[in-house]
Amino acid sequence: MSEKFKAMVISKQGDKFIREIKEKSVEELPEGDVLIKVHYSSLNFKDALSAIGNKGVTRNFPHTPGIDAAGIVQNSKDSTFKEGDEVLVTGFDLGMETDGGFGQFIRVPAEWVVKLPEGLSLRESMIFGTAGFTAGLSVFALAENNTTPEDGEVLVTGSTGGVGSMAIAILSQAGYDLVAVTGKKEKEDFLKELGAIRVISREEADDQSGKPMLKGVWGGAVDTVGGNILATAIKSTKYSGTVTTCGLTQSTEFTSSVFPFILRGVKLIGIDSVQLPMDRRLPVWDKLANEWKPDSLETLTNEIGLEEVSDNIDLILKGKLTGRTLINLWK
């Protein structure tokens, strides 16, 4: 008899999308090489978009969101993995069109699966999740492009969100001095506890002068919001500095002259954590499990159970969540 499990299922009824916790069977899962019992997942903005029927994320319903999952291999058709292995999955199609980590079991292709790095627990891997992995990729890009702690302060935008808060914690652990941008003045102490040396307002990070370049004050920047705040970071970055971009909450568009690139040699690096090849994933997860693993992981984390996910989806859509929301599938 096939094993039963609980999952959040999003169903479309007319123009409405209904969230329910339902009992499912392992036999209902999509075809794949590796069956995983999910212990932890995490809530990301993309999961919330899937839950409200955003066509850029999910088109086919009923569907189980959850772009992150960590758990134990139950069986595998691929010899790379065996029963009992601790593993994690982020990115690719998980939680988009393939049923994801908001269910107690997933079945996925072997090439999506990462063996849990030594030094990291299943719980910690999902405190990181896609947000932490994206932040880790951003830090990796700074280092690869020779933006070091000696180059001066690094700006982090959208700093109370999942990627922004993780970026502050990771960069601080890696020895950088961080300046956090936020519109939430009441979160200043939280951001300093994560490692920011100071906090500035959105207005300070959103230049409206129209000037093509500003004084170079940042050694580099990790941008999570896009729009004019990204443009401001680019034209405020010092010679040969690196700016990474991975988000769009302010806007999908920004306007910049070529001057920061051709006069200061500023580098703009796009961060993709979805289709990234495995040989690029593994070094970043190894860093996160070891020298970049922040002491402040628990400070970042609010743990919930599956029954609480729907309410937290509403909160993240309203911009009312801070840090990381960890989902314990068996709580």
Rank of each mutant, 00 (worst) to 15 (best):
V163S: 00
S165R: 06
S209P: 10
A167N: 08
A131L: 03
L230A: 01
V154L: 08
I127F: 09
P149L: 00
V156G: 05
T160A: 10
F128H: 00
R198M: 01
K185S: 10
G158S: 06
S121L: 13
V163M: 04
D151A: 07
N146Y: 14
R198S: 11
V154Y: 05
F128S: 04
F133N: 04
T130L: 11
L230V: 00
S172T: 14
I170N: 11
T182K: 03
L142P: 05
K185F: 03
V181F: 10
V179K: 01
D151Q: 11
A141N: 07
Y176P: 08
A135E: 07
G152A: 07
V217K: 13
L230E: 05
A167Y: 02
G183H: 03
L122N: 09
V154M: 04
I197Y: 07
I197T: 15
K187W: 12
M126G: 04
T130A: 11
V199T: 02
I229H: 05
V139T: 15
A174P: 01
K211W: 13
V163A: 03
F128T: 03
L120S: 09
N228S: 13
V179A: 06
D151T: 11
G161Q: 02
D206W: 14
A221W: 09
R123W: 07
L137Q: 00
D223N: 14
D206I: 03
L120D: 10
A135G: 07
S159V: 08
G216T: 04
G227Y: 10
G195K: 00
T157A: 09
L230D: 03
D207A: 03
K215N: 15
E203R: 13
G183K: 12
A167I: 00
E186W: 07
V222H: 08
S165W: 06
I229M: 14
A221K: 04
G119H: 09
S165A: 13
G152E: 04
I200D: 12
A143Q: 15
L142T: 13
I127P: 05
D177G: 05
A180V: 02
T182D: 00
T130R: 05
V179M: 12
G119R: 09
D151Y: 04
Y176H: 04
S172G: 15
E124R: 09
M166S: 15
S165D: 01
P212Q: 15
V181A: 11
T147R: 06
Y176C: 01
E188Q: 03
A233H: 00
I170M: 14
S172V: 04
F140C: 05
N145Y: 08
